[in-house]
Structure formats: C-alpha cells, structure tokens
C-alpha cells in the first residue's frame, strides 16, 4: 500500500469517527423517553418511547394490519397504534422501544417496534416451551 493511500484512509477513518461521535451523541444521549416523560413534555415530534406492553392490551386487525396496544412505565400508560411487525418476542409484559410520534388524541403512532429484551437468561426445562408471542407465528399461519 502506498503511503499516500494509507494516509488518505487514515484521514477518512478519522473523519468518519468524528461523524459517528456526532451522530451518536446527538441521538443516543436521550435514546428513549418513558410514558411519564412523553406525556409531561406534550411533544408531538419524532421520538422513541420505551415501556412494557400492558398484558392483555394487544389487539390485531387482520384486514388493516393494524396493531393496537398499550405501554406502561408503572406510572403512566400510553396507547399505541402501529402497522409495524415486531419479532416473535413481542409478548405481554415485554419491553419495547417504539419509534414514532404522539398523535392527536394521545395515541402514539409507532413506525417501528423494537423489542428490548432483558439480560436475564434461564434454561428451558425439558418439556417446557418458550411463551408464545401475542402475534400469530409465521409457521402456523398460511401465506
């Protein structure tokens, strides 16, 4: 490798590093807000909302592909509507990070549903199966 090419690579790496730090700091310092914080802020801009899926709150609409549920931080609860498809870990009580904005009527419209799973791991006992997701499994649904 010629010295000039390497130097150029070095400069490019340094520059992308700075960009990364910039992007990271601007978006990561307050990565998400809790329902309490979101409701207190009355902010309707694009944001991330983190909460636990309220057990029994998930409703799916097969025709509109719409998903309705509620998330809570234990103090406040926010109703959510979305057409995004979460992974199979989407269950009652699971932590979710929602990307979207607070719409009119206090319903959070989520463009994206990410599962924030816990750092707790437990061995599956013989005969035991993992809890089913609240959405139908792709393996059990005909295309």
């Amino acid at each position: 490798m010629s010295r000039r090419v390497t130097l150029l690579g070095l400069v490019l790496t340094g520059a992308s590093l700075l960009v990364l730090v910039g992007v990271g700091l601007s978006s990561a310092v307050v990565y998400y807000r809790t329902p309490t914080e979101l409701l207190a802020a009355h902010d309707t801009g694009a944001t991330r909302l983190y909460g636990l899926v309220v057990p029994g709150s998930v409703r799916t609409d097969p025709t509109t592909h719409r998903l309705d549920f509620r998330v809570t931080d234990g103090t406040d609860t926010v109703a959510v509507e979305s057409t995004a498809l979460p992974t199979a870990l989407f269950r009652d009580g699971v932590g979710v990070v929602l990307e979207g904005r607070l719409g009119t009527g206090g319903v959070f419209v989520a463009d994206n549903i990410l599962i924030k799973h816990s750092e707790v791991y437990e061995a599956l006992k013989p005969g035991q199966t993992i809890p089913p997701g609240v959405l139908p499994s792709p393996l059990s649904v005909a295309p």
């Binding site: 799916t60 592909h65 998903l67 992974t87 199979a88 989407f90 997701g133 959405l135 139908p136 649904v141």
Partner: peptide, 9 residues
C-alpha cells in the same frame, strides 16, 4: 394476517 419474519431461529 400480521406476520413476523419468516426466517427461523
């Protein structure tokens, strides 16, 4: 129907 990723574990 709402479907999740068809990619298996």
């Amino acid at each position: 129907m709402i479907r999740q990723s068809p990619v298996t574990d």
